[in-house]
């Protein structure tokens, strides 16, 4: 298991760059996320917020800058003065401490809700099935889906699927949770139940990075908000500053469009 320092920032990004071929998606992102802090990323589509989130657990590899999570360089082992690229197994081991929730849920369709939650603890941690199943039921109860333990994802609503996905991520007892537009694929009436689960998690003191367009929700739960556009951070600060009283024209424009989609 990865060593997790209790002090020091959980995420440290210094001039992080990422490009897909000739397309520059991140043009130098610098930010830190402290222990227990809830940081939100927002911005128009294509601004690079999801890409940055995916870099944090090495689903994408950065092309420049420095990115450290729990003090370790993402994807590298520091040996003396050099950085050695990690083997796939080592990359996998680092990810155990980071939970991720996806826009499209990505539940495993061939497994029941309970099996989805139990997979990683049994396979990755090698824990006993009964032990894991007990923990999984506690988690299902926490997201309000105890009754759905033996149901396959196809028979769950989008909101229920996303709640199972959150429980699945929590089953590995991560120290950092990443949310990649967790409510964007949901019908409007199902958004609330998912946000409530995330809200509860926020209150439990979990360190979180959230990419979302739910301005009202972000205002409530975030400690800091980063507004991104064109691969850079345009504006950042406490939610009351960035969301209520934005200074930058691009932020104002974005908020106006998100809050009043018809205008």
């Amino acid at each position: 298991m990865t060593y997790v320092p209790t002090s020091g920032p959980v995420v440290e990004a210094l001039g992080v760059c990422k490009n897909f071929g000739r397309l520059e998606v991140l043009k130098g992102i610098t930010l830190t996320v402290d222990h227990g802090e809830i940081v939100s990323l927002m911005g128009p589509s294509g601004s690079g917020k999801s890409t940055f989130l995916r870099c944090l657990n090495h689903l994408e590899t950065i092309n420049g800058g420095e990115l450290r999570v729990f003090g370790d360089y993402v994807g590298y082992r520091e040996v003396g003065n050099k950085l050695h690229e990690l083997k796939p197994k080592e990359v996998a081991a680092r990810r155990q401490n980071i939970g991720m929730v996806f826009q499209r849920f990505n539940l495993f369709p061939h497994m029941t809700a309970l099996e989805n939650i139990c997979l990683a603890p049994t396979v990755v941690r090698g824990r006993s099935k009964s032990d894991v199943a007990h923990h999984a039921e506690v988690l299902l109860d926490r997201v309000g889906l105890s009754a759905k333990r033996d149901v396959y994802p196809a028979q769950l609503s989008g909101g229920q699927q996303q709640r199972v996905a959150i429980a699945r991520a929590l089953a590995m007892e991560p120290e950092l949770m990443l949310f990649d537009e967790p409510t964007s694929a949901l019908d409007p009436e199902l958004v609330g139940e998912v946000l409530q689960v995330i809200r509860d998690l926020a209150e439990s003191g979990m360190t979180m990075v959230i990419v979302s367009h739910e301005i009202g929700f972000l205002k409530d739960v975030s400690d800091r908000v980063f507004f991104m556009d064109g691969g850079v951070v345009v504006e950042s600060g406490p939610p009351v500053e960035v969301l209520v009283n934005p200074q930058h024209e691009r932020t104002k424009d974005f908020l106006r469009r998100v809050l009043q989609p018809d205008s």
């Binding site: 990505n106 539940l107 990683a120 396979v123 590995m172």
Partner: peptide
């Protein structure tokens, strides 16, 4: 997305292939 979900849970590439 299935592979990404499995990998983000800490499954190795071989485990991802075999289980998911």
């Amino acid at each position: 997305g299935q592979t990404e979900a499995a990998q983000s849970l800490g499954l190795t590439p071989v485990q991802t292939l075999r289980r998911v």
